[in-house]
């Protein structure tokens, strides 16, 4: 049964006697609130500390990075590490990392675009048309995402070797699209289901063809859904590590995650560079997700409430 607790009453209208919280004395409520705040603050510190530490590391001079005891505050800020991310040491043009970042942008961007471009019409077809064994088909499509990519890395590697796709950006784009597609279909189908088919019926009776009806009426209404789906697909492609590290080796094809991981190892580790690279790597996705944050909520809560 739907219950609605109306807490906003207290204090709303002066002049009306408000009988106070039902059954719970005031003081006990305050203690509970402080406890909640303390707990949340603790959790926040635990979760954010690594990020904050990484940010600081990326801005510290090398001597501060290795300082003992570790310096939390009161260090000199330098942007050298960020410079090193993009420019070759010694000042001779773009660094290798810069190339890796470029590759990441290309691969993630194109695979997301492709997965969305193919996924939206497929989702629409699944939503609108009676297809034989639709539920089984959809389950099969979803099931490909049950397994972690690492499970199929070796067969893919062998396949790619025969096709000459090893160590190519194209290879990565294709495999990321393949992994994103089931997800985009599933998520977009949910969004398409929410748009009543009657708009398309009305458009067809108005005189448009089925396809015109889709483009004119349904597609504009799907934009929030497409945004949400694209963000999730982008996050997967951008962060993907296992397939990238197995299927690429040279700098020209490698994306950022394996490259940044490659910075750790050997005799001395340039932690400043690692931290700066990680920050640069995280920034675009955070920004993108922030821009479409409203649509993200819709994507996550889709279909949760049944009327």
């Amino acid at each position: 049964m739907a219950l609605q607790v109306d807490d906003a009453v207290a204090g709303e209208t002066p002049g009306h006697a408000h009988p106070g919280r039902r059954g719970v004395p005031r003081r006990a409520g305050a203690v509970r609130r402080w406890f909640e705040i303390a707990l949340l603050a603790f959790l926040a510190v635990v979760m954010l500390f690594p990020v904050v530490w990484m940010l600081e590391t990326s801005l510290k001079e090398n001597r501060d990075v290795y300082a003992v005891p570790a310096k939390l505050l009161g260090f000199d800020v330098t942007f050298d590490h960020y410079k090193d991310v993009f420019i070759q040491r010694g000042g001779s043009g773009a660094s290798d990392l810069a190339t890796n970042f470029k590759n990441s942008v290309l691969v993630a961007g194109l695979s997301t675009a492709l997965a969305t471009l193919l996924g939206v019409p497929a989702a629409w077809a699944y939503s609108r048309f009676p297809i034989k064994m639709k539920k089984d088909q959809l389950f099969f499509i979803l099931s490909t995402r049950f397994m972690p990519p690492v499970v199929v890395v070796i067969p893919i590697f062998l396949m790619y070797r025969d096709l000459g796709l090893i160590d190519t950006k194209l290879g990565l784009i294709l495999i990321y699209t393949a992994f994103n597609l089931p997800f985009t279909i599933w998520m977009m189908k949910g969004f398409v289901d929410e748009v009543p088919g009657e708009y398309e019926d009305a458009a067809m009776l108005d005189g448009y063809s089925r396809l015109e009806a889709f483009f004119r009426v349904t597609l504009p209404l799907l934009v929030p859904g497409i945004a949400a789906t694209a963000v999730f697909a982008l996050i997967f492609s951008w962060n993907e590590f296992v397939l990238a590290i197995f299927l690429t080796s040279s700098e020209s094809a490698r994306t950022a995650p394996p490259a940044i991981a490659g910075l750790i190892g050997g005799t001395t580790i340039d932690w400043g560079l690692v931290a700066a690279s990680a920050m640069v790597f995280a920034a675009p996705v955070l920004l993108f997700a922030f821009l479409v944050r409203k649509h993200l909520v819709a994507g996550v809560t889709l279909g949760a409430v049944r009327r």
Binding site: L3, Q4, D6, V9, E12, H16, A17, H18
Partner: peptide, 12 residues
């Protein structure tokens, strides 16, 4: 009705 039931809290 919901106020009678206690599902809504009246303001007065």
């Amino acid at each position: 009705l919901r106020a009678i039931a206690g599902l809504e809290r009246q303001t007065g």
